[in-house]
């Protein structure tokens, strides 16, 4: 008997991605869908896509979704989860969405320890609007609004989301990954699964940051983009687990009287 080793995830609609060639969103979408399939939670998952390139995520994810205005995903996701505690709620956000216009909503959702999962795509630019400087744009990186490169004196520094969010007591699990290599993709999937499992187990806020290529706005080939992630971005944004209190939370959850 032939064994299926590769198939289209059920939680992903059979639509052709509109994302540019080499874009990391397509990979991240697929990973999230695979995790939803593997965990068997398609029917109870509600997603909140951001404003930005992934605003059309509902064309691809075959789960219930509701659009949030710029940056407000975690506020909406918090409310949805509070009303439907037995559903799995995730917000999918870009760097501008999470770390600029929606930093308050993201920060406070984490600080409240909302039992939701945030998938954070960091590609160091505003993609959909045409490659402007993002809060995570690297120093000296050229964008359409930092044409001579990001200057710390004028534009400040790249915002390190995982480093900041891991300081919040409300956050349970915070990890940064990268989809610049097959190994990175596998690691990212593991992290996403861990984050969703954290939520399913009722253990609190989880965030997975994904360093993700944007060849179009970086004006690089997809291959060079992946190299740039590994050689430049990863220096500023080192991948790794920044916080993992899953075990502790589990213990205290078990210790708590029913």
């Amino acid at each position: 008997m032939a064994k299926t080793v590769f198939k289209h995830p059920e939680s992903l609609k059979e639509a052709v991605f509109h994302y540019c060639p080499g874009c990391g969103h397509s990979i991240a979408h697929r990973l999230v869908s695979e995790v939803i399939d593997e965990m068997g939670i398609r029917g109870i998952t509600i997603g909140v896509p951001p404003a930005g390139c992934a605003v059309l995520a509902y064309n691809y994810f075959d789960v219930d979704m509701i659009e949030a205005p710029h940056g407000r995903g975690p506020a909406m996701a918090s409310a949805i989860k509070r009303c439907l505690p037995d559903r799995v709620v995730f917000s999918y956000q870009g760097d501008g969405d999470l770390a600029a216009i929606g930093i308050a909503e993201s920060f406070h959702a984490a600080n409240r320890g909302e039992n939701i999962t945030v998938i954070f795509i960091n590609n160091a630019v505003y993609g959909m609007t045409g490659g402007q400087m993002a809060p995570t744009t690297m120093l000296n990186q050229r964008t359409t609004t930092s044409p001579t490169g990001r200057k710390k004196e004028l534009d400040g520094y790249p915002v390190k989301v995982c480093e900041i969010f891991s300081q919040l007591r409300g956050a349970t699990y915070v990890e940064r990954c990268s989809v610049s290599s097959p190994a990175g993709v596998n690691k990212t999937k593991k992290a996403i699964k861990k984050a969703f499992q954290c939520q399913v187990d009722g253990l609190g806020f989880s965030l997975v940051e994904v360093l993700s290529p944007c060849p179009t706005n970086w004006k690089m080939t997809p291959i060079d983009s992946c190299k740039w992630i590994d050689e430049v971005m990863a220096k500023e944004f080192p991948p790794g687990v920044f916080k993992d209190e899953i075990a502790e939370m589990k213990k205290s959850a078990e210790a708590a009287p029913c």
């Binding site: 949030a68 407000r72 506020a75």
Partner: peptide, 17 residues
């Protein structure tokens, strides 16, 4: 909520449910 903006988006999310 952390702000008025968050509050209105929270009720939007809750309303959707």
């Amino acid at each position: 909520s952390e702000s008025e903006i968050a509050a209105i988006n929270m009720i939007a999310g809750a309303s959707a449910t």
